[in-house]
Nucleic acid binder design. Sequence first.
DNA 1: CGGGGACGGGGAATCGATTTCTCAGTCGAG
DNA 2: CTCGACTGAGAAATCGATTCCCCGTCCCCG
Lengths: 333, 333
Amino acid sequence: MGRSITVRDVAAAAHVSPATASRALAGHPSVNPEMARRVLKASRELGYSANVFARALRTQRTDTIGMVVPSISNPYFVAAVEAVEQVLAETDRSLILCDSRDTVATEAARVDLLVGRRVDGLIVVPVSAHDSVPALRAAAAEVAVTQFDRIAEAAGTDFVGGDNDEGVRQCVEHLRERGCRTFAYIGARPTTSTADERLRAFRRFAADGVAPDRGFLLGEFSAEWGREAARTLLDDGPLPDAIVCGADVIAVSLLTTLRAAGVEVPRDVKLVSYDDSSMGQLTVPRLTSVHQPIDSMAREAVRLLDGRREDGSLPARKSIFAPDIVVRESTGV
Amino acid sequence: MGRSITVRDVAAAAHVSPATASRALAGHPSVNPEMARRVLKASRELGYSANVFARALRTQRTDTIGMVVPSISNPYFVAAVEAVEQVLAETDRSLILCDSRDTVATEAARVDLLVGRRVDGLIVVPVSAHDSVPALRAAAAEVAVTQFDRIAEAAGTDFVGGDNDEGVRQCVEHLRERGCRTFAYIGARPTTSTADERLRAFRRFAADGVAPDRGFLLGEFSAEWGREAARTLLDDGPLPDAIVCGADVIAVSLLTTLRAAGVEVPRDVKLVSYDDSSMGQLTVPRLTSVHQPIDSMAREAVRLLDGRREDGSLPARKSIFAPDIVVRESTGV
DNA sequence: CGGGGACGGGGAATCGATTTCTCAGTCGAG
DNA sequence: CTCGACTGAGAAATCGATTCCCCGTCCCCG
């Protein structure tokens, strides 16, 4: 683990000054092509790679952005992370990923950590529409922040998300076309903007078909909750014609548990969900689910960050993307 | 996004030199308690937080370790990551997480990235027992490296893993106790050390009960492969008494697919798996699975890293942990 | 009473890359 | 032929925290 090679070593090997070496390596135009060639050659031969810290210290940039998601066991977030990584790779930047474990305190700690690491920007899927505000506000004072998928409005940052109203509308419409008349909604408590919007949308679009008492089961974005909800549903008498689920993580274990109890899907009950994640395609039957254009959303999130770095005084912007339902076997033929 | 507060600002506010301020903040004993108090107060009031890069540049330490796993959608790796994070938090260090997407090239890129970021150490779950060697060797020349769970021997780094031989032995023994006589193994191709060891162990311990032609199905550590394997199994005539699965990720979708085809588990076939991950407890029936002491393993991994930083010339060490089978419904009563 | 030692604290060097600043040397125009 | 604009490249400052080195002070003891 010997001392590593610095720009001075390269400069010495190429018989130029460190200043020139630096310029040559950066591809600065005002350097003699012959010299540039020598420097590049020396750099290659010595296996030079710039010290990230020295550079960051001087330039105040890290070419790194940070991302904080509530749970890396949720395939939807994993997809988002991968999409962002892809976009960043195009411009030779990289990503530091953190998991907030769906906990406000952990989220705050992770956000602080990343701000301390002077990331150029921060993409956060906030844990709570309300309690995530302080940490995000504080972070936004130091660095560009974009909220992703969910929003804690009062933080006043940029935002990229999906049109949940439209997504749920498509779900209910699709189910109606399949002949369903009574609906139940199984999702997360409205502590996040997505949970809230999806729930409201369901209330509105399925208004005339919600089972009076058992039309809503609200818990968390977790597989455990899906299993629990399924049990409640089974205990509580006749099933509705269809279930709208707030997320694939919930729907997958819900589906598995229902089937284990002898319920046939889609025959006995139809099931639609949200996120169109990879795990929804591994169940039998596969899930009909609302797809969001995650790649475009990731690109937009990065674009917003870059924009804010140029001009920090911009007002908070929101980019909302239209979703699209993907029909599979869980809603039958 | 104004200029941030430096140690000089704190020093000025406390009417001391930057040198003293720095010492005071580090809790160095040779500083007058009264001054230390002033400095700490000033620091608090100004909301000072040290520039990570300046510090790293000077001290050559980052108080950060990097971790590279093949897939963050595998709950077993997620558990490992969380365990490592926990251990690091005890000493105020943090983790940078990367996903190698089960791809040697991506793995090499991520490892390089982390080495470039001058992490104090690197914990890697290598993608391949053979092809991961070059990147790991190169990394190990720059920084302390511990391989975790799987090993690419020739890289010559430290290693922490489980005793796969013993784990599989327990599986087969348990199944024999349950009255099983014929076995099939469904796992990953032996491109990783774990896959290889588990396969060999199965060969040895189940030798007298392996179905002649269809005793081994080898693919990848993925849910897709579990589904595919289940189909193959169903197409190929009578099922064995029991299936030993190389990992929960495979077992979960295998189980789901079998049940969808009307196979009753554990009545028609018993199923044991490896990793004892969270997803294995969400299926119906829940999986009997081999548990590894992930917390202790994480602690040991960090300990090995720290040891190597002290003395880089140590020979490569291996720490092998004994696993323990956890019996649940998938192997019946 | 003077000298040695302990101790606290400040000045300045250091980590490495980048970016002024500065100054030879060149070229074209008058 | 001379002067100013221009070019390219090196010297040095900068980013911010840490730490080595050294100096002044004070105490204690001979």
